[in-house]
Write a protein that binds this DNA or RNA. Sequence first.
RNA 1: GUGGAUUUAGCUCAGCUGGCUAGAGCACGAGGUUGUGGUCCUCGGGGUCGCGGGUUCGAAUCCCGUAAUCCACCCCA
Length: 458
Amino acid sequence: MAAPTFQPPKGTRDFYPDSMAVRRYIEDIWRRVSIRHGFVEVDGPTFESMDLYRVKSGEEIVSQLFYFVDRAARELALRPEFTPTLARMVAEKAQGLPRPIKWFAIPRCYRAEQPQKGRLREFMQWNVDFIGDATSRSDQEVLMLCVDALREFGLTTKDFRIGWNHRELMTQALVNTFVKPDRIGDAYFILDRLGKLSAAARSELYTQRNCDEEERGHFEMLADAISQTAVAGPALDTLMASWPAAVRSSIAAFEQKISDAGMADYCRFDIGVVRGLAYYTGFVFEVMDSSGENRAIAGGGRYDRLIEMFGGPALPAVGFGMGDVVLEIVLRERGKLPANLLPRPDVFVVNALENGQPAARLVTDLRASRWSADGQRIVRPGLHVVESYRSTKNIGKLLQEAATSESRLAVILAEQEYQRGVLKIKNLCDRSEREVPVSQAVEQVHAALKQAGPEIRG
RNA sequence: GUGGAUUUAGCUCAGCUGGCUAGAGCACGAGGUUGUGGUCCUCGGGGUCGCGGGUUCGAAUCCCGUAAUCCACCCCA
């Protein structure tokens, strides 16, 4: 009977060494930048009670979950996002947690959707949440963290743009101009799509949502202020002139905060940023790549009712999520992903001695860290050391292998020198080499590494 | 859930309208060189031609089904 062949399940990825290194690179930057901004890492279960996801989501979204029933008939689902877990965790411990709560997580998430560019069924999603501060200060902080991370990846104003809006202010503006309060949901539905549709498609959308002539006229004006044409700026100015003064000054105030934080070049007020679902209550934002070809790199905003929805106290919150799939595509397209992210060995031990013991001993010594006498700190770090698993003693062949491994140094153990109690340390970048006593090998290797090539391959 | 394209060696692909044991380049391994490198030369391992049916004397090639991938629609937390 022939063995069956297997493929990874639809929409999942295997992480071979190269792609695993890319994933680690991305996660390391997310983690490093989060910590730098004073956030601490959390995580939760990869699956939760189905009911947790029913709290704030519609049927459409629940139908996109990986759903299963355990042997005790409990309904469970793989997490499609981290926010419900986070809200549950905060709600449970809210009384005892120091505030504000600044948490981040890098969970693996699952959605049973049709895979396409930038969207898979299993992905990593960086989640950042700032809970317990109702002011725009936390909005600004969260936005700042997002920008800082994108810059850490090497992205610039040429590569991405952040559009921001404010649900509350936008509602006021719309209601004060033309939208009837009971039509606000429809208005957001339309606003969310205006920027992506042609005039004909917009017209069809208006019909579908039962817009009268007056509404159509207003929405067309909104559409002009969204599309990134020459008229967008003036159109937005004209539009805003009809908004309440309080709304305009609030927008100006936040614009000032963005400017104060040095983010003015990255962010712009954009009435087209609505962020789909209803739970956002104030500030919202979305990171788009400049080409406009990809889906959003990240998105988030304020959801002050969130913790209450999951049974906790009333706690204001703001946060965002960034997935690894779109980010990696953008980094690749922009040439911002280093070609080879695998760790580069410090030393390749070339053993041309018949007796394997000296080389084995050297490898062990180089890999071992040396600790202070009290064992409390590392005096000398252990090195990343590799060697050949081939039987040949041909130094040329072994050096070729050392070069292929992109090691920074080679240490050559060969009969002639070894008889004299020395070995050779070779710098694989400039090809220089020198003899050192075997007894000082470890110290000399550390010294040589200071002048050796870079630690990353690039 | 819907539509289009695709699937041949580890990778990138050839294989015309069906015809002898299925090919190339790169990569990998061994040797040429029992002491100094990414070049070169020789040799070598590797493929149920996505999978399952069907048509045919004969299928990688034609037909049907199915899975996956890519792209788009729906949706997008």
